[in-house]
Design a protein around this nucleic acid. Sequence first.
DNA 1: TGTTAGCACTCTATGATATTGAGTGCTAAC
DNA 2: GTTAGCACTCAATATCATAGAGTGCTAACA
Lengths: 354, 354
Amino acid sequence: MAPKKTAAQKPMLDAREREILHAVVNSYITTAEPVGSRTVVKRFNMDISAATVRNVMSDLEDLGFLQQVHTSSGRVPTDNGYRYYVDHLMRIQELTLTERRRIEREFSQKMEDVDGLLRHTSHLLALASHQASIVEAPDATQTRVQRFELIPVGENRVAVLMVDNFGTVRSMIATMTGAVKTRQVEALNNFLNQNFMGAEIGSLADSVRIRLGEILEEQRDLAQHALEAFDMIPRRQEKRLFLEGAVQLFEQPEFQRVEQAREVFGLLEEHDKLITLLRKAVADGDGRAVFISKDDDKPGIEGIGVVASAYNVDGKPAGFIGVLGPRRMPYSRLTALVHYTADMVGRFLTRLGG
Amino acid sequence: MAPKKTAAQKPMLDAREREILHAVVNSYITTAEPVGSRTVVKRFNMDISAATVRNVMSDLEDLGFLQQVHTSSGRVPTDNGYRYYVDHLMRIQELTLTERRRIEREFSQKMEDVDGLLRHTSHLLALASHQASIVEAPDATQTRVQRFELIPVGENRVAVLMVDNFGTVRSMIATMTGAVKTRQVEALNNFLNQNFMGAEIGSLADSVRIRLGEILEEQRDLAQHALEAFDMIPRRQEKRLFLEGAVQLFEQPEFQRVEQAREVFGLLEEHDKLITLLRKAVADGDGRAVFISKDDDKPGIEGIGVVASAYNVDGKPAGFIGVLGPRRMPYSRLTALVHYTADMVGRFLTRLGG
DNA sequence: TGTTAGCACTCTATGATATTGAGTGCTAAC
DNA sequence: GTTAGCACTCAATATCATAGAGTGCTAACA
C-alpha cells in the first residue's frame, strides 16, 4: 500500500503519482481508450516497471482520480481526475505566434456591428477548437445609454433615438395625440440626458417610470410615448447566444451512441442551461474557467466539459465565451485559445463602444 | 404479370395498384418497418389475398415505386414511390379547428418585431411537426424603403432614419466635416423621398450612387455620409434562417446511426444549402411544396424530405418556411400545417408592414 | 384469365458458445 | 520499495444453430 491517504482527506499526491495521473489523462485525452500500465510505461518512456505503475494506479483509483470501466480493463480519469489535472497538472499550452496571428487577422476583418463580431467569433472558435462554440452577447447590464435624441418629425410625431455604449442606435417614431411643441421636446430631451445617461439599458423603462413625477406636466404625453419605445428594449436585449460547430461533436467517440449525442444537442438548444454552465465554469474553475461535469450529474450535462472565459468591455465583465465538448477534451490547448479569444472580443467590443 | 408497363413509360397505375402503394407508404410512414403482403391485407382490411398483394407489389417494384431491403424482406417505398404518393395519392389532412385555433393563439401573442415573429414561428413549427423547422427571413428584395427622415442634430451632425415596409426603423448618425445647413438637409430629404421611396433596401446604396449626379453640389458631402449608412444595410439583410427542433430528429429511427444524424446536422448548419432545398421543394413539388431526396443524391441530402411553403407579404412572395425530416414523413399532415403556418406568417408580416 | 393456397427457399435477427487478448491483482523474490 | 511471474477477469469477436417473417413460384380454382 502507498502512503495513507483516503478520498476524504485533501489529496496530496507525490511526484510519481502526479506524473502517472498526468500520463493517464494525457493518453486518454488523445486516444479515448482506457489506459493500461504497460501503455503508460511505453508511451511516456518511464524508468519504472509496469507492475509499479499498476500499484500507483490502484492507489489513484482508491483516491477517486481514476476508475476502471470493468474489472480487467485499463483506467480512465474520473471527473475528479480531470479536475485535478486541470487545476494542478496541466501546463497551459500557449498559442503559437502563427495561431495568434491567424486569430488577429480574422478579427481585423468585418467589424461593422456587434452581432457580426460575435457571430464571427463563434465561427472562429468552433473552427479552431473542433468543439461546439458558445458566444454570449454582452450583458444588458453592461449596455448603457450613451445619449438620447428626441427629434420632432412633422406635425405630431417624434423620433426617439438612443445610442448605447457599443454605438448601436435604437430608434422608434412615436405618434402623439396632439401637436408637438418643440420646447417640450427639448426640455424632455435634456431631462433624459441629464438623468439617465449611463443607465442600464435593460431597466431603463423602469428607471424612467420611477422618476416620472419629476417630469413637467406638459411633457407627460410625450414621455409616455417615449416609454413605449423603452419598454421594447429588454426583449431585444435578452441574452443571446451565438452557437456554432456542433456537428464536430459527432466526430468524438463519446458521442457515437445516439442517446449521448442527443443529450448534448438537446443541451445546445437550451440556451438558459448553457448560460448557467458558462457561469459555473468560471465559478468552479477557481479562476481557471473550466467546467467538468460530475459523474452523477443529470443526463444532458453528464459527460461534458466546458472551457469558458469572461470578456471585459471597458474593463468590466460583460459576458462569456466558451467551447463545449466531451469531458475528454484537450484542456491545455483550449484554455489558451478561449482566453485569448475572449481578450480579443473584449478589446474589439470596447473599441466598438468608443 | 400485370399489364405491360415499364419504368420508362409514364407510369399509370390502376386502382388496385394505387391502393396498395398507398397502403405500403402509409404503413411504412407510421412504423418505419418494411411492409409485407400479409401486413397490407391485415392492416387495411383488404378483400384480396396476400398472394395477390404480393403480385402487385412485385409489379410496383418493377415500376420503381417500391424496393426490397434484401431478397426476403418486406418492401419500402423508393424516392419515386414517395413522389407518386405525394403527387397523386395522399389526401392532405386538413388541420382540425383546435389545431388552427392553437396556431392562431400563438400568433396573436408577442408581435413587436419581425425577428421575434419569425423566431416564434420557427418554434411553433418545430413543436407541431416534430421535425426540424426552417424559417427564412423576408427577402431583401421584398424589403423596401417607406420613408426617409434626415434630421439635423446639433452643429454638424445629421440623423439618418429610414423606415422600411415592415416598420423597422434603421438609423445612423452621420458627422459632417463642416456645419450643416438646414436648407440642404431638407432638400436632400425631399430628393430621397421623391426618388427612392419603395426602392429595394438591399440595393439602395447602389441606386442612390447611380443618381448621385442629380444631387446638388452643396449636398454632396451630406449625401456621401448618408451613403455610408446605406452601405451597411445589405449585410444586415443577408438571408437569415431561424432553425429549431433539430434534436427531435434523433427520435427518428433513420437517424439512429450516427453517420446519418451527422449528415443532417451538418446540412442544418449550411444555410445556403438549406435555402436551395427550400426553393427546390417548391419547384419540384409542382405547386405542392414537397422535396424528396433522390436515392442517388449526394450524402448530406440523401434520405431527407422537406415540406415547404412560400409566404407572401403584400401579395408578393417574400420567403419560405418549411420542415425538414427523414424521407419517411407524415406528408399529409405536414403539408397542411406548413401551408397554414405560411399563410399566418405572411398575414402577420403584411400587417406589421402596414 | 385473374386469383388464391401451398410450399420451398432466402435472409435477418437472436442467442448460445468458444476463443483471443489486453489488463489487472497478488505473491514471492530481489 | 520494486519487480517478475502467473492466475484470473472480462470485453470483443467469431462461429454456429434456430426461429420467423416474407418472398417467388407452381398448380389448382372460379
